[in-house]
Amino acid sequence: MKPIWYFVGLILLTMGGIIFLSGIYLLIDPPTVKTVLSETHPDIWWGAVMILFGLLLYLKNRKVIIN
């Protein structure tokens, strides 16, 4: 079966990607009600961190099969 790390990578990649793209959208079209520190765009850089971490786990385990 696929190792758990494959699934962790996949879910972080998917969620990180959505958060990152959502952050880019909010950068282009800022919301009227802003959160504290919204000027630091945490969705963009945190989404990017999730993508990187998820990608690493996904690529490392995509061909791994364990008994």
């Binding site: 969620m15 959505i18 958060i19 952050g23 959160t35 520190l37 945490p42 969705d43």
Partner: peptide, 14 residues
Amino acid sequence: KRYYPTGLVGLGVT
């Protein structure tokens, strides 16, 4: 609620 914008709120709730 204070810090998270759209998307991150979903992640926090998840």
